[in-house]
């Protein structure tokens, strides 16, 4: 009569486990949408939903990059200022007379360089990620301010309007670009050896060492990718506001962290992926757009969004602990 032993999953509550099945962002998004639909007319109309998708595009890019970094158990706090820097840089380059394709290439290169800087200091210097990216956040922000002399700078081009407003069968190009990038990120994370290494760093770095995989090189590559995604996000944002604003990316990095965490990606064990992040981003955008639609003054929005994000992260942590996902 041998008893079942080594039940290391122990006692956990079933209800809480069910809650952890889908990313918390999904539930919150549905609840928020139902809530807003009471106050705003035609909330579920495609015209409204497509606006939400369009506005979410830049944050989506950041969150894709942030997903990689969080899978590696870090958080990149400099992504928002990379957005500011690259968007200002783009307009600046265009104003200097660079052609569109060349300037886009240069901006992406700039994003990659920002990522490289982060990656080198984290990967080779072995410093805590948050302090490194907090430092570079200020460096990039300062560079953006210097580039444009603290002013919003403008450039006229049809491409901006086209990317942000036009599209095929009701889906704007910016949404298409953002989903293409999400697709690429998904592919990278799930179908390539690079993705395996990223998950390995978060899950069990020992295994990487044993397999002879360089942790620092993978870290650097991850940060470069995040930098490139932030640059793409910066350009998408630029298209929407048709200008380069040195403060346009402020706070986006934390929205991205929140989106990733609420999307079910864990800061431990390399669990999760870009699929859940989509819902995280959409949830935040539903909230932001919804507050405006319902008529909440923009003065109140930052505090409300901050509180919702913080509460959501806290709840997520509690649910996960109760559900016994992590000891």
């Amino acid at each position: 009569m041998r008893k079942k032993v080594y039940d290391n999953k122990g006692i956990r509550s079933k209800g809480f486990r069910l809650l952890t099945f889908a990313p918390p962002a999904l539930y919150m998004m549905i609840i928020l949408m139902i809530l807003f639909s009471f106050f705003a007319d035609h909330y579920f109309a495609w015209s409204n939903l497509s606006v939400i998708l369009r506005q979410a595009a830049p944050l989506m890019m950041l969150a894709c990059g942030q997903t990689l970094i969080i899978l590696m158990q870090g958080t990149d706090l400099s992504l928002g200022s990379i957005v500011s820097l690259t968007s200002v840089l783009w307009i600046w380059l265009l104003n200097l007379g660079f052609g569109m394709p060349v300037s886009i290439l240069l901006v992406i290169l700039a994003g990659a360089l920002c990522g490289l800087l982060n990656g080198l200091i984290v990967g080779k210097g072995l410093l805590p990620v948050f302090i490194v990216t907090l430092g570079t956040q200020n460096i990039f922000k300062s560079a953006a301010l210097l580039l444009c002399g603290s002013q919003t700078i403008y450039y006229r081009h049809d491409l901006f309007r086209m990317v942000a407003k036009e599209g095929l069968s009701g889906i704007s190009y910016s949404v298409m670009i953002s989903f293409l990038m999400v697709g690429i990120t998904w592919f990278l994370l799930n179908q390539t050896s690079f993705g395996m290494k990223i998950r390995g760093i978060g899950g069990n770095p020992e295994a990487l060492t044993l397999a002879g995989v360089s942790i620092s090189r993978t870290t650097i590559m991850g940060f470069i990718y995040a930098g490139i995604m932030a640059a793409v996000g910066g350009m998408l944002l630029c298209c929407r506001i048709e200008s380069g604003n040195p403060n346009s990316g402020n706070g986006l990095e934390f929205s991205a962290v929140a989106a990733v965490l609420l999307g079910g990606t864990s800061m431990r064990e390399g669990r999760g992926g870009v699929g859940g992040t989509i819902f995280g981003v959409l949830m935040l955008q539903v909230l932001r757009s919804g507050l405006t639609q319902v008529g909440v003054s923009s003065i109140y929005q930052n505090a409300i969004i901050g509180i919702v994000i913080l509460t959501a992260i806290i709840l997520d942590e509690i649910i996960r602990r109760r559900g016994g996902e992590e000891d």
Partner: peptide, 10 residues
Amino acid sequence: TMIPWLDGAQ
């Protein structure tokens, strides 16, 4: 030396 959220083959 398992990486917890990768599958067996990976």
